[in-house]
Nucleic acid binder design. Structure first.
Lengths: 363, 363
DNA sequence: TATATTTGTGTGTGCGCACACGAATATATT
DNA sequence: AATATATTCGTGTGCGCACACACAAATATA
């Protein structure tokens, strides 16, 4: 493995100069810089990240800006845990990760949390761009400070984010369509349940719906879809009433597609008599959803691998920081996992083994 | 973060002595050893793996013993690539990985390759225990030399392997049964195609078959299964004849399950008239199999994530070596991925991004 | 008693890199 | 031309650890 010292010798300069060239620290004449660069390239030199980390000793601070999770919305717990595991893994490279969470329904909270995040002087940011307008503000701030950032889970085009880590929502919906047709092969009618705020929040929900519909279209499936809007899924009384009334009026419905992580709410609101004659397909492996999968009320869940999303984000950003890799605007699409009651337990190993928890007893 | 120097000061000994205690190098009096240990424990001291790796600089050599791959059997290419990527990732910790491949149908080759592997004096071994008898010989040799080893892809109980990295074959077969029933819901007949050598080689094939059958049984599916043995799938003339004759004699067959990675051979041997009326389910995301998936001749493939198997093995063994972690006999079960033509492209990102391939142009 | 061997401990060096400091050289100012 | 200032570059130190070496004290052997 070639070292800085080797390069210095070959270029007839000192190690310090090579170091300056590598890190663009300036203070090097054009001529020497060119010469060193040439040799660097010729020998395809890469800094040894281990030695670098040792010498740097905690110089990088990644701040993560993600929605908070609670008992009724456990989805965001997984990316959080993934980030934690990632943080543990990259600790050794002198990278410290801090989490900041905001209320995913409140743009103000998003913005405020960001500004308190900013005060910790992070060297990089991992963020879930939940609101368009506020994201613009945040991004302009970050770019002014020359802080690299990447998008997690939600993608918005038109920014200079280093990367996007998440799922191809359209294709995920498309696959949901396929699974629905597989579950209800004969011509039938499928109901799509949509929460009002989904429309505003982000377009991954609508991309899933688009994909779902287009599967039926492209494969000339004669089944039809219809949509039911429910303002607030957390209002269980209202939800219950609305759905059951709807199903009473529409006995032709044999499949329900919930393009969000809230299918467990829908299932729990529906009367038993409807439940057993309707196939359900939803998103995300939250504990509540997994329970529905296991008790056979839900046929399939599509996972967007939230744990991996968090983990990969940290790894990716660490690469950017320590190796100066550039994934600019790269879309890192995670697998579209089809979950059934049988394979769900094998799907995401999101246990976190902290090094400190490992005990050695070699006495 | 507490360092060896700190410990030494607190114990009133030199750093060298602390080092000796930490690594059980001996040559320390009982009294001082006890004192140092106490302080070590009190401050919950862990060596800094980064500094350790830097100082060690290539002291670990992992040797991987896996089946070779060729054009007709591409399955083993993925674990190989996974190992390569893992090797690249752990290089920075002073771990070097070397691959040794053997003929998976020849026990002698297995043994011979192992002994030539042994001559390279590895400090750890990742192996695919393809043959029981020979594995016993290998393992006894390894244990005599105190070389840790782990099993990849194939699991055999009763050994002191650090871990097993692979899939739960039984459950994978079980899920195949579910998918088959989903594809052919009405009472029908399914054909299981088995190669002779599968029976001898390992029991993951038979576990898959067991799982497949038990799904039908446990869920009271009235569909039946029958088995066709084909000695050598590579003999295409013979295979073609056997299968097509069989299907002519058994027109009731509406689904074919191939519990190995060779489903593409079966599909390619079957006459077009049968092809379009039969559903196919098989294993593994080899290029040929993926092609079958995409042209709709195969409905589902179950992936055992071979790339990840290789990658995880290297990571795991590296942890054992550098952090003295102990996963003894731990089963690391990878996900049971259900692949369709729609999600297959998202499934395994097994491109190998070598650090050296990344070019920077910040001029 | 003299010499060899074992046992216990401290010291020093290097792993590859980041960065501070200061020296040497080049350029600008009066 | 002399001094001031900027530019360019080399040297040295330390990050935390592993391990070779040196050396003393304790014990064994001649």
């Amino acid at each position: 493995m070639i070292t800085i010292k080797d390069i210095a010798k070959k270029a007839n300069v000192s190690e310090g100069t090579v170091d300056r060239v590598i890190h663009n620290r300036g203070g090097v004449s054009k001529k020497t810089k060119a010469k060193v660069k040439e040799i660097l390239a010729f020998y395809n030199f890469r800094v040894n990240p281990v030695a670098s980390a040792l010498a740097m000793k905690n110089k990088h601070f990644i701040a993560a800006l993600i929605p908070e999770h609670n008992d009724s919305d456990l989805f965001w717990k997984s990316p959080y845990l993934g980030i934690l595991k990632g943080a543990n893994d990259v600790k050794r490279f002198g990278v410290q990760v801090n989490n900041f969470t905001f209320n995913q329904y409140d743009p103000d909270s998003y913005l405020k949390t960001f500004f308190s995040l900013l005060e910790t002087k992070p060297t990089a940011v991992i963020m879930v761009p939940n609101f368009l307008k506020e994201t613009k503000i945040i991004v302009s701030k970050l770019e002014a400070l020359d802080i690299p950032y990447l998008f997690l889970n939600i993608n918005i085009d038109g920014f200079n984010n280093k990367a996007f880590v998440g799922q191809d929502s359209y294709m995920a919906g498309y696959i949901a369509g396929k699974l629905m047709n597989l579950s209800v092969p004969k011509p039938s009618s499928f109901l799509i349940i949509q929460a009002r705020h989904n429309i505003i929040k982000n377009n991954s929900i609508s991309n899933r719906i688009k994909g779902f519909n287009e599967y039926l279209l492209k494969n000339r499936i004669s089944s039809k879809t219809q949509t039911l809007q429910i303002d607030n899924l957390n209002d269980s009384l209202n939800t219950k009433e609305k759905i059951n009334t709807y199903l009473k009026d529409h006995p032709e419905v044999e499949g329900i597609f919930v393009p969000s992580s809230r299918i467990y709410i829908v299932v729990n609101c529906i009367e038993a008599s409807y439940l057993k004659n309707i196939k359900f397909i939803g998103f995300d492996n939250t504990p509540q959803n997994i329970e529905c999968l296991k008790n056979d009320s839900v046929s399939f869940l599509i996972s967007q691998k939230p744990f991996e999303q968090g983990y990969e984000s940290v790894r990716l950003m660490t690469n950017c920081l320590t190796l100066k890799k550039d994934y600019l605007n790269n879309k890192i699409h995670l697998p579209i996992d089809i979950l059934t009651k049988e394979n769900v337990d094998y799907n995401e190993r999101n246990e976190i083994v902290f090094e400190s928890e490992v005990q050695k007893n070699n006495s």
